[in-house]
Design a protein around this nucleic acid. Structure first.
Lengths: 226, 226
DNA sequence: ATATGTGAACCCATTCACAGCG
DNA sequence: CGCTGTGAATGGGTTCACATAT
């Protein structure tokens, strides 16, 4: 087990922070990176709270959870907190991922990573379309899907991103799990069945649209001008 | 006047179901559609529960919320429940949406809708790239972004889907809101500021990956070997 | 005085347990 | 009986309030 320089109190709390909390922490990190780019050195909990739309005690409690202490008069030190969050997300050791399904959606996601250097790296992409084999797409080499196990297994790849049609999603998930990933980002509108040791995050655009359909109808009780 | 955005003028009947509940209802609907395609006529709460990974009382409570009653011995009647859910999501009146940003991501989302007939229709798409103007992309006519207000306003378009780079997301959101949409699906990794009468659903792939990074690390005690 | 750290209260979503009905 | 409908209990996440530190 590798621990980085920043020591938190002896509490190596592996506790499962709630998914909501983890998402907020990722947002804090993003805002802190922006602030750092702008030359800021410290930030108050209430500033961070305003930036992502929560209350300041929420921020303080979240940061307490990751074991980073602020300064009662000056707030939180940005660079240090970013380092702490990097460690929290395992980015100090690097996160390796692969993507399966180089359609429009897959390419869109690859574009998020091309150019900008991140602690999260896309190691390879896979597809079943022979015209894509051995090409470099979005900065990544594209391999045939049936070589996935051979290429991914044992390489310490943590995350698989699934951007294939719904009908293929489960078989791709099975393949990725067999190859050793323990986290999946599933962009296909399908429900995946995976062993409990694998974490799945579903990103279902159709579902999101339906949600918005409901709430937007509700929000527009009257649509009279203002 | 300062608006805290905290005025909930909840209508008791159509009460603001929680976001989580609405997402589940959309999933129920999808599963029911599949079952109907397979020729099933009724379904039990525990079946539906298993299909989406929740407990049966949760299903019954959710369906109670939308006011659909099952039969104590035969479960829920599929066709009727689907109709009820269609009405719940406003689909019986049709949901009209537009999409802004015809990059890979935008095209991927358009592909979700091309071919399959849905109660949700994509009315038009917009971009700033002149080479795309007046072309039909994913079954939709592409207009210049600066014609958005003229084309969308007054057409009863409910939802805007934002698939532009992060830096443009806010201005596109402003435009869509001015044109009268009251629901946004935001695929850009940016935080949007909108009036409280507009519902925003963020779909942030980068955030999702970071979430999975955390939980996948946590799920795998060590990453060295097996 | 101002901002953090945190126990305690609060609130809401989920789950339980059982009444009711076919 | 089996399955639904739902009040009651549970549990987890958020907010409050205040002690603490500088």
């Amino acid at each position: 087990m590798i621990t980085t320089g920043n020591e938190k109190k002896g509490k190596e709390k592996l506790s499962l922070t709630s998914q909501r909390a983890v998402a907020r922490l990722a947002l804090y990190r993003r805002m802190l990176l922006h602030a750092k780019d702008d030359g800021q050195h410290t930030m108050y909990s209430h500033e961070l709270a305003d930036l992502i739309g929560v209350h300041s005690p929420q921020v303080r409690r979240d940061l307490m959870e990751v074991g980073y202490l602020g300064h009662p008069r000056h707030g939180y030190e940005i660079a240090g907190l970013i380092s702490r969050l990097d460690a929290y997300f395992g980015m100090d050791q690097g996160i390796r991922m692969v993507l399966v399904g180089v359609g429009n959606l897959g390419r869109a996601i690859l574009n998020y990573f091309v150019g900008k250097q991140s602690h999260i790296s896309m190691e390879a992409v896979f597809d079943t379309d022979p015209t894509k084999f051995d090409r470099t797409i979005g900065g990544c080499h594209c391999y045939p899907l049936d070589q996935l196990y051979a290429i991914v297994s044992g390489k310490g790849v943590h995350i698989g991103v699934i951007t294939v049609p719904a009908v293929q999603a489960q078989s791709v998930a099975d393949l990725l799990v067999k190859a050793g990933v323990n986290g999946l980002v599933n962009l296909a509108p399908a429900r995946l069945r995976v062993p409990p040791s694998v974490f799945v995050e579903d990103m279902d655009v159709t579902l999101a649209i339906e949600k918005v359909a409901y709430f937007s109808k509700m929000f527009s009780g009257d649509r009279g001008g203002k």
